[in-house]
Design a protein around this nucleic acid. Structure first.
Lengths: 208, 208
DNA sequence: CGGCACACATACCGACCGGTATGCTGGCGG
DNA sequence: CCGCCAGCATACCGGTCGGTATGTGTGCCG
């Protein structure tokens, strides 16, 4: 129910002994463990041990285990929405903007692969209220992306028969799935995957 | 570790009083509950109550809660592989076979939407050994599908620059994602989605 | 120099949960 | 008609987990 119980210790603290603050470490370790073993299989005890603190610290900064997950979602969601808005607002032709937006979400999803894994495996484990909030944010992102498809259709450069919503769900399924198969030590770089994914999307919507 | 502990009560039983057997009901209710609340959040107590029996019955037919999940996976995996092989073996041109295979996996995924949801949310909760077995089966399916893409490329009807593996991962991401957004009471029929998804795939791989 | 609030550590609790050991019963083979 | 075994039901256990109440040190403010 509650978020952080106290004020976040600001960087104005006199001695910058530690480069990472305790809440930062908690979030980072939680992300790692959630991606590795899943939300339910990760105990708060494991999280605090990995972060080198105790439960007292965790419940000092976060209201519940649930809050940790919500915060992880919020971070990646804000990042992706912000980048999409920047790209969509450029003066480039719609084809270039859709390509760039598609490639960008692939690159950032791979850069934060743990968050991506967690997102689509654990979202239903949030409390109903927080789930609703996340869905609302997700929907804003979806609509921003869909607007690009619709703009291309109205300009006649994208095929008119397609349902823009379906196209967006189609593409983001592929993006969400990245966490399942992509390996950082594999043969393909994030940019290679991004380029090819964006290429596949453009070819499927472009007017022949 | 163990599968069913005793022989499945065959249909040869004299009195066909119940149309559904106990293990069938257990599997059906488990599927429903796993899709609804997730694997870890569903207790075996809830499953047996939904099926109208007790834990004694469940552990009489299944070795563990894990076995239930594995059996659910096995069912949908066998079904989809069988259908893919039938389609891939037809004498039609490769474009038509890829289209039909793509549309078919969408239709069957929607028809068994609960299984699809469970598959990609709970696979990592299986024991390592069973997870390995499922991955192997999944890989066989993937390769069968990839062979269709490669065949089209060698015939010159599909674009040569694409990585067949990436194309398959791309498409199946979309398919797995269906469980997240598709609603049976929504506006689109399974066939509509299937046709449009297959159309998007073909447009992205076909030689212009 | 006091005291007080922040930032944690320690200790502990009640609620489950997966699994098992054992009890009961009806039908079928001999 | 009898025994026995498949097919469950009942009772129970050890372990774990999220969360909380309370203790404690320490640096900043007055």
């Amino acid at each position: 129910m509650a978020m952080a119980r106290s004020t976040t210790p600001s960087a104005t603290r006199k001695a910058p002994k530690a480069v990472t603050t305790v809440p930062q470490r908690l979030l980072a370790e939680a992300t790692r463990l959630f991606a590795e073993r899943g939300y339910d299989r990760t105990s708060v005890q494991e999280i605090v041990e990995a972060a080198g603190v105790t439960k007292g610290a965790l419940y000092h900064y976060f209201g519940s285990k649930d809050d940790l997950l919500h915060e992880i979602y919020g971070r990646v969601l804000r990042l992706q929405l912000q980048r999409l808005e920047a790209i969509a607002g450029k003066p480039d032709p719609v084809e270039a903007r859709l390509f760039e937006a598609a490639a960008d979400v692939v690159v950032t999803s791979i850069a934060n692969l743990d968050d991506t894994k967690i997102f689509f495996r654990s979202m239903h484990q949030l409390s109903p209220e927080k789930q609703k909030a996340v869905r609302a944010d997700r929907r804003r992102y979806h609509e921003k992306f869909r607007a690009l498809v619709e703009e291309g259709q109205s300009q006649g450069v994208f095929r008119p028969g397609l349902s823009p919503d379906l196209v967006v769900d189609y593409f983001f399924g592929s993006v969400h799935h990245l966490g399942t198969w992509y390996r950082h030590d594999g043969q393909m770089s994030a940019e290679q995957v991004a380029t090819e994914y964006a290429d596949l999307l453009l070819h499927s919507v472009r007017q022949p």
